[in-house]
Amino acid sequence: MEPINEIFFGEHGLTSTSATHLANIAQETIVSHEEKLKNLNFVTTKVDIVGSPTHSEKMVNIGYDEAFLGQIRSILEEIAEMNAFCAWVREAVKAKDKELNAIDGMDIDVWCEENGFELAKEPIRPRRIYENDIIAKMNVRERNEYYQLEAIAATIGKCIHNEGPLSSARKELQNKMVKPFSTEGSGHEMLIYSHVPSVEPQKVEDIFFELQKWHRSNEQQLNKIKFDIKKRLEEENLANNQRYNTEVKEAHQKISAQISAFNKWQIEERTRLAKLKIIIPNSLQGTYDKLSRLEE
Protein backbone atom coordinates (compact mmCIF):
# COMPACT_ATOMS: atom_id res chain seq x y z
CA MET A 1 0.00 0.00 0.00
CA GLU A 2 1.22 3.48 -0.83
CA PRO A 3 2.23 5.42 2.31
CA ILE A 4 -0.15 8.23 1.39
CA ASN A 5 -3.10 5.82 1.66
CA GLU A 6 -2.20 3.89 4.81
CA ILE A 7 -3.42 6.60 7.16
CA PHE A 8 -7.06 6.12 6.23
CA PHE A 9 -7.44 2.51 7.30
CA GLY A 10 -7.63 0.33 10.38
CA GLU A 11 -9.39 -2.71 11.77
CA HIS A 12 -12.25 -0.62 13.14
CA GLY A 13 -14.26 2.01 11.31
CA LEU A 14 -16.58 2.29 8.33
CA THR A 15 -16.96 0.24 5.18
CA SER A 16 -16.62 2.14 1.93
CA THR A 17 -20.37 1.81 1.38
CA SER A 18 -21.27 3.25 4.79
CA ALA A 19 -18.71 6.02 4.45
CA THR A 20 -20.04 7.01 1.04
CA HIS A 21 -23.62 6.97 2.36
CA LEU A 22 -22.73 9.33 5.23
CA ALA A 23 -20.81 11.57 2.84
CA ASN A 24 -23.94 11.81 0.68
CA ILE A 25 -25.97 12.83 3.74
CA ALA A 26 -23.32 15.43 4.57
CA GLN A 27 -23.53 16.74 1.02
CA GLU A 28 -27.29 17.13 1.35
CA THR A 29 -26.74 19.16 4.52
CA ILE A 30 -24.22 21.34 2.70
CA VAL A 31 -26.65 21.98 -0.15
CA SER A 32 -29.41 22.86 2.33
CA HIS A 33 -27.23 25.37 4.15
CA GLU A 34 -25.87 26.86 0.93
CA GLU A 35 -29.42 27.44 -0.25
CA LYS A 36 -30.01 29.57 2.86
CA LEU A 37 -26.89 31.61 2.14
CA LYS A 38 -27.58 31.81 -1.59
CA ASN A 39 -30.69 33.90 -0.94
CA LEU A 40 -29.15 36.23 1.64
CA ASN A 41 -30.97 39.54 1.66
CA PHE A 42 -30.96 42.29 4.25
CA VAL A 43 -33.46 44.60 2.59
CA THR A 44 -37.18 44.80 3.33
CA THR A 45 -39.05 46.26 0.37
CA LYS A 46 -42.53 47.75 0.24
CA VAL A 47 -44.38 49.06 -2.79
CA ASP A 48 -47.00 51.77 -3.15
CA ILE A 49 -49.02 52.24 -6.33
CA VAL A 50 -49.22 55.86 -7.37
CA GLY A 51 -52.85 56.95 -7.70
CA SER A 52 -54.17 54.22 -5.46
CA PRO A 53 -57.12 55.63 -3.43
CA THR A 54 -55.97 53.88 -0.26
CA HIS A 55 -52.22 54.66 -0.66
CA SER A 56 -51.49 51.51 1.31
CA GLU A 57 -48.03 50.05 0.99
CA LYS A 58 -47.65 46.38 0.18
CA MET A 59 -44.81 44.22 1.47
CA VAL A 60 -43.00 42.57 -1.43
CA ASN A 61 -39.83 41.36 0.29
CA ILE A 62 -38.77 40.84 3.89
CA GLY A 63 -35.03 40.95 4.55
CA TYR A 64 -33.33 38.56 6.93
CA ASP A 65 -33.28 39.85 10.48
CA GLU A 66 -30.47 40.16 13.00
CA ALA A 67 -31.18 36.72 14.44
CA PHE A 68 -30.42 35.09 11.09
CA LEU A 69 -27.37 37.33 10.61
CA GLY A 70 -26.01 35.91 13.84
CA GLN A 71 -26.43 32.38 12.48
CA ILE A 72 -24.27 32.91 9.39
CA ARG A 73 -21.03 31.92 11.06
CA SER A 74 -22.51 28.80 12.63
CA ILE A 75 -23.95 27.83 9.24
CA LEU A 76 -20.55 28.30 7.61
CA GLU A 77 -18.90 26.31 10.39
CA GLU A 78 -21.26 23.38 9.78
CA ILE A 79 -20.71 23.59 6.01
CA ALA A 80 -16.95 23.54 6.60
CA GLU A 81 -17.38 20.66 9.06
CA MET A 82 -19.37 18.64 6.54
CA ASN A 83 -16.92 19.49 3.73
CA ALA A 84 -14.04 18.32 5.92
CA PHE A 85 -15.86 15.02 6.62
CA CYS A 86 -16.59 14.54 2.90
CA ALA A 87 -12.96 15.34 2.03
CA TRP A 88 -11.68 12.69 4.43
CA VAL A 89 -14.20 10.02 3.44
CA ARG A 90 -14.00 10.53 -0.31
CA GLU A 91 -10.19 10.53 -0.24
CA ALA A 92 -10.30 7.31 1.79
CA VAL A 93 -12.73 5.59 -0.61
CA LYS A 94 -10.65 6.74 -3.57
CA ALA A 95 -7.49 5.49 -1.87
CA LYS A 96 -9.00 2.04 -1.24
CA ASP A 97 -10.18 1.72 -4.84
CA LYS A 98 -6.77 2.78 -6.06
CA GLU A 99 -5.02 0.20 -3.89
CA LEU A 100 -7.33 -2.60 -5.03
CA ASN A 101 -6.72 -1.67 -8.66
CA ALA A 102 -2.98 -1.49 -7.98
CA ILE A 103 -2.98 -5.05 -6.62
CA ASP A 104 -4.93 -6.38 -9.62
CA GLY A 105 -2.65 -4.61 -12.07
CA MET A 106 0.63 -5.27 -10.29
CA ASP A 107 3.44 -6.59 -12.46
CA ILE A 108 5.60 -9.30 -10.97
CA ASP A 109 8.79 -7.39 -11.72
CA VAL A 110 7.47 -4.38 -9.83
CA TRP A 111 6.43 -6.62 -6.94
CA CYS A 112 9.91 -8.08 -6.77
CA GLU A 113 11.45 -4.63 -6.53
CA GLU A 114 9.00 -3.53 -3.84
CA ASN A 115 9.85 -6.63 -1.81
CA GLY A 116 13.58 -6.07 -1.88
CA PHE A 117 14.64 -8.21 -4.83
CA GLU A 118 17.19 -6.10 -6.63
CA LEU A 119 17.34 -6.37 -10.41
CA ALA A 120 20.60 -6.97 -12.20
CA LYS A 121 20.88 -3.51 -13.69
CA GLU A 122 21.96 0.00 -12.89
CA PRO A 123 19.91 1.63 -10.14
CA ILE A 124 16.89 3.58 -11.28
CA ARG A 125 17.01 7.24 -10.51
CA PRO A 126 14.80 7.73 -7.45
CA ARG A 127 11.31 8.95 -8.11
CA ARG A 128 11.00 12.63 -7.42
CA ILE A 129 9.23 13.38 -4.15
CA TYR A 130 5.98 15.28 -4.56
CA GLU A 131 3.54 16.98 -2.23
CA ASN A 132 1.53 13.79 -1.74
CA ASP A 133 4.61 11.95 -0.48
CA ILE A 134 5.13 14.55 2.24
CA ILE A 135 1.44 14.55 3.09
CA ALA A 136 1.65 10.77 3.38
CA LYS A 137 4.01 11.15 6.33
CA MET A 138 1.57 13.31 8.30
CA ASN A 139 -0.27 11.71 11.19
CA VAL A 140 -4.07 11.67 11.40
CA ARG A 141 -4.25 15.03 13.21
CA GLU A 142 -1.90 16.77 10.78
CA ARG A 143 -3.55 15.34 7.65
CA ASN A 144 -7.03 16.19 8.89
CA GLU A 145 -5.92 19.70 9.88
CA TYR A 146 -4.66 20.20 6.31
CA TYR A 147 -7.98 19.07 4.80
CA GLN A 148 -9.95 21.13 7.30
CA LEU A 149 -8.00 24.32 6.56
CA GLU A 150 -8.61 23.82 2.84
CA ALA A 151 -12.31 23.14 3.46
CA ILE A 152 -12.69 26.22 5.69
CA ALA A 153 -10.85 28.46 3.20
CA ALA A 154 -13.09 27.31 0.35
CA THR A 155 -16.25 27.64 2.43
CA ILE A 156 -15.61 31.15 3.72
CA GLY A 157 -14.23 32.36 0.40
CA LYS A 158 -17.32 31.14 -1.42
CA CYS A 159 -19.46 33.30 0.86
CA ILE A 160 -17.44 36.54 1.16
CA HIS A 161 -15.61 36.84 -2.15
CA ASN A 162 -17.04 38.78 -5.08
CA GLU A 163 -20.37 37.35 -6.25
CA GLY A 164 -20.58 35.39 -2.98
CA PRO A 165 -23.94 35.55 -1.17
CA LEU A 166 -22.77 37.72 1.75
CA SER A 167 -20.68 39.99 -0.47
CA SER A 168 -23.58 40.45 -2.90
CA ALA A 169 -26.07 41.09 -0.11
CA ARG A 170 -23.71 43.62 1.44
CA LYS A 171 -23.34 45.49 -1.86
CA GLU A 172 -27.09 45.50 -2.38
CA LEU A 173 -27.62 46.89 1.13
CA GLN A 174 -25.11 49.67 0.46
CA ASN A 175 -26.75 50.51 -2.87
CA LYS A 176 -30.24 50.61 -1.38
CA MET A 177 -29.03 52.89 1.42
CA VAL A 178 -27.83 55.36 -1.21
CA LYS A 179 -30.99 54.93 -3.29
CA PRO A 180 -33.77 54.09 -0.82
CA PHE A 181 -36.50 54.52 -3.45
CA SER A 182 -36.94 53.08 -6.92
CA THR A 183 -39.75 53.18 -9.46
CA GLU A 184 -41.18 50.94 -12.13
CA GLY A 185 -43.57 51.97 -14.85
CA SER A 186 -44.98 55.46 -15.36
CA GLY A 187 -48.05 57.60 -14.83
CA HIS A 188 -50.88 56.19 -12.78
CA GLU A 189 -49.36 52.72 -13.15
CA MET A 190 -46.03 53.74 -11.67
CA LEU A 191 -44.81 51.55 -8.78
CA ILE A 192 -42.69 53.17 -6.09
CA TYR A 193 -40.48 50.86 -4.06
CA SER A 194 -39.01 51.90 -0.74
CA HIS A 195 -35.95 50.00 0.49
CA VAL A 196 -35.22 49.81 4.21
CA PRO A 197 -32.36 47.86 5.84
CA SER A 198 -33.68 44.83 7.70
CA VAL A 199 -30.65 44.85 10.03
CA GLU A 200 -28.27 47.53 11.22
CA PRO A 201 -25.87 48.10 8.28
CA GLN A 202 -22.88 48.33 10.62
CA LYS A 203 -23.64 44.85 11.92
CA VAL A 204 -23.49 43.54 8.37
CA GLU A 205 -20.11 45.25 8.00
CA ASP A 206 -18.96 43.78 11.31
CA ILE A 207 -19.84 40.20 10.38
CA PHE A 208 -18.34 40.68 6.89
CA PHE A 209 -14.99 41.87 8.25
CA GLU A 210 -15.08 39.26 11.01
CA LEU A 211 -15.36 36.56 8.34
CA GLN A 212 -12.57 38.21 6.36
CA LYS A 213 -10.37 38.12 9.44
CA TRP A 214 -11.25 34.46 9.99
CA HIS A 215 -10.44 33.73 6.36
CA ARG A 216 -7.05 35.49 6.58
CA SER A 217 -6.16 33.65 9.77
CA ASN A 218 -7.10 30.32 8.18
CA GLU A 219 -5.11 31.15 5.03
CA GLN A 220 -2.03 31.96 7.12
CA GLN A 221 -2.16 28.55 8.79
CA LEU A 222 -2.70 26.79 5.47
CA ASN A 223 0.15 28.68 3.79
CA LYS A 224 2.50 27.77 6.63
CA ILE A 225 1.75 24.07 6.13
CA LYS A 226 2.25 24.41 2.36
CA PHE A 227 5.56 26.22 2.92
CA ASP A 228 6.77 23.43 5.24
CA ILE A 229 5.77 20.83 2.64
CA LYS A 230 7.70 22.65 -0.08
CA LYS A 231 10.77 22.92 2.14
CA ARG A 232 10.69 19.20 2.93
CA LEU A 233 10.25 18.42 -0.78
CA GLU A 234 13.44 20.26 -1.62
CA GLU A 235 15.38 18.66 1.21
CA GLU A 236 14.25 15.09 0.44
CA ASN A 237 14.76 15.41 -3.31
CA LEU A 238 18.28 16.73 -2.72
CA ALA A 239 19.07 13.86 -0.35
CA ASN A 240 17.67 11.29 -2.80
CA ASN A 241 19.73 12.66 -5.69
CA GLN A 242 22.91 12.59 -3.64
CA ARG A 243 22.23 9.01 -2.58
CA TYR A 244 21.52 8.01 -6.20
CA ASN A 245 24.86 9.44 -7.40
CA THR A 246 26.63 7.19 -4.89
CA GLU A 247 24.60 4.06 -5.58
CA VAL A 248 24.96 4.30 -9.37
CA LYS A 249 28.61 3.27 -8.96
CA GLU A 250 27.71 0.03 -7.30
CA ALA A 251 26.68 -3.24 -8.85
CA HIS A 252 23.38 -4.88 -8.22
CA GLN A 253 22.67 -8.42 -7.36
CA LYS A 254 20.36 -10.62 -9.33
CA ILE A 255 16.91 -11.31 -8.05
CA SER A 256 14.66 -14.31 -8.08
CA ALA A 257 10.90 -14.24 -7.75
CA GLN A 258 8.46 -17.12 -7.70
CA ILE A 259 5.22 -16.70 -9.60
CA SER A 260 3.42 -18.79 -7.03
CA ALA A 261 4.58 -16.48 -4.21
CA PHE A 262 3.44 -13.48 -6.23
CA ASN A 263 -0.01 -15.02 -6.87
CA LYS A 264 -0.36 -15.89 -3.18
CA TRP A 265 0.56 -12.34 -2.25
CA GLN A 266 -2.08 -10.93 -4.61
CA ILE A 267 -4.84 -13.07 -3.09
CA GLU A 268 -3.82 -12.41 0.51
CA GLU A 269 -3.21 -8.69 0.02
CA ARG A 270 -6.54 -8.16 -1.71
CA THR A 271 -8.36 -10.04 1.04
CA ARG A 272 -6.55 -8.05 3.72
CA LEU A 273 -7.25 -4.72 2.04
CA ALA A 274 -10.91 -5.53 1.46
CA LYS A 275 -11.34 -6.07 5.20
CA LEU A 276 -9.76 -2.75 6.20
CA LYS A 277 -12.16 -0.11 7.53
CA ILE A 278 -12.03 3.64 7.03
CA ILE A 279 -11.12 5.22 10.36
CA ILE A 280 -12.74 8.42 11.59
CA PRO A 281 -10.31 11.02 13.03
CA ASN A 282 -11.08 12.23 16.54
CA SER A 283 -11.92 15.72 15.30
CA LEU A 284 -14.51 14.28 12.91
CA GLN A 285 -16.13 11.94 15.44
CA GLY A 286 -18.76 14.55 16.35
CA THR A 287 -19.59 15.04 12.67
CA TYR A 288 -19.87 11.28 12.23
CA ASP A 289 -22.24 11.01 15.21
CA LYS A 290 -24.37 13.88 13.86
CA LEU A 291 -24.63 12.28 10.40
CA SER A 292 -25.38 8.89 11.91
CA ARG A 293 -28.33 10.38 13.76
CA LEU A 294 -29.59 12.00 10.56
CA GLU A 295 -29.83 8.64 8.80
CA GLU A 296 -31.81 7.03 11.61
Rank of each mutant, 00 (worst) to 15 (best):
P201Q: 03
C159W: 00
I229Y: 08
V140L: 09
R90W: 10
L22D: 02
M190K: 14
V89T: 05
P197T: 01
L294P: 06
D228H: 10
T44D: 13
N24W: 06
I103R: 09
N39Y: 11
A84D: 03
H55C: 08
M82W: 02
G51R: 03
D289S: 13
F262E: 01
L273I: 14
E219S: 14
L119S: 13
E172M: 04
K94V: 02
I225G: 02
E6G: 04
D109F: 07
D48S: 05
S56G: 07
N218F: 02
E247P: 02
L76N: 06
D109V: 06
I259L: 13
R216S: 06
Y288F: 15
N282V: 11
I108S: 05
P281E: 15
E219G: 05
G157Q: 11
V199G: 00
L233D: 02
N41G: 04
R243K: 15
K171E: 10
L191W: 03
A261M: 05
L233W: 01
L166Y: 02
K171M: 08
K277L: 12
R143H: 10
S16V: 14
A26S: 14
A136K: 01
S168T: 06
I4G: 00
I103P: 03
E269H: 07
R232C: 07
K58A: 05
Q27T: 10
E268Y: 09
S194H: 03
S16T: 15
A95E: 06
Q253M: 11
G51D: 08
G63N: 06
N263A: 10
N115K: 07
L291A: 05
Y288V: 08
E234D: 15
E295N: 12
E91S: 15
L276Q: 13
K137C: 03
L211Y: 01
Q202I: 09
A80V: 04
Q221T: 04
Q285T: 14
Q212A: 09
D65T: 06
K275E: 15
A154T: 09
N83F: 05
S256H: 11
E189D: 13
L14R: 10
L233I: 13
N61I: 02
I156D: 01
I160L: 09
K179V: 03
P126Q: 10
F8A: 10
I103T: 12
I278Y: 01
D133P: 01
E122V: 07
N24A: 14
V110C: 02
E28R: 13
G116D: 09
N241L: 14
E142F: 00
R127Y: 02
S217C: 01
E200Y: 03
H188C: 04
A26I: 08
V50E: 15
H188N: 11
F117G: 05
Q212T: 07
L76S: 03
A80H: 04
L119G: 04
